[in-house]
Design a protein around this nucleic acid. Structure first.
Lengths: 110, 110
DNA sequence: ATTATAGGCAACCAAAAGGTTTCGCGTCAA
DNA sequence: TTGACGCGAAACCTTTTGGTTGCCTATAAT
């Protein structure tokens, strides 16, 4: 349920390095579009587009304050990523275990 | 160090849904290109291109066996994603804590 | 020796992504 | 009330992406 007719999903949203930087910038502070775009070597419009993609993925929320629009990160949608990851985590941990056993056997064999 | 002049990074590699399906398919079995492409509604060449992207990100390894090329998933590079995530996990967990406290206070106030 | 199978490579194409500049409109300050 | 500021929208451009088909080579199978 919870309102996401998401044209852009989380996986796609975080694929772009600029957007990952945006998240980092907004993770614990609200900031206006102009201020945000001061941190990037591109036009305000370009930054604005990236913000929309993040917004569609639910990763930022916007708040209108007078004539400015302030953005802040919303980390919750990253849970989907975490869930996806946790499945594979299982596999690389198995390999780690296997490697560990191998090394230990080597030690013992000496 | 460890050989990755990665033209494609992990974030980009997993952005595409077809590539995520490929990973799922190859997570615990080796499979030839033709067999793999039987699972997808697109040409063998298209699948092959996706496999190359995954390979450049280190997420699959290929092994030549006679005239066929077998692929298998390699989960380790997902660690980078995990590390990236763990930073933000902190934030949404804080919110969870805050929410929990709020709910508990509500309960007590009754 | 000949034929069939596996799969990479090149050329091509349409659509999407990432960027730009220009314009217009709402909001705040003089 | 007249600017100046904040920012979204539109039009446009270039590069990348995701797909296609056709061809070529290497390896198997008959």
């Amino acid at each position: 349920m919870s309102a996401s007719a998401a044209k852009h999903d989380v996986f796609q949203a975080i694929a772009d390095p600029t957007r990952r930087q945006l998240l980092q910038l907004l993770v614990n502070q609200e900031m206006s579009v102009t201020t945000i775009s001061g941190h990037f070597p591109m036009s305000r419009t370009a930054v604005s587009k990236h913000l929309r993609v993040l917004s569609e993925a639910g990763l930022v929320i916007e708040q209108k304050v007078g004539r400015e629009t302030r953005y802040r990160m919303q980390p919750e949608p990253l849970k989907e990523l975490k869930d996806w990851l946790s499945y594979y985590e299982l596999f690389w941990e198995n390999k780690m275990q296997a490697l560990k056993r191998f090394v230990e056997e080597e030690e013992t064999a000496k």
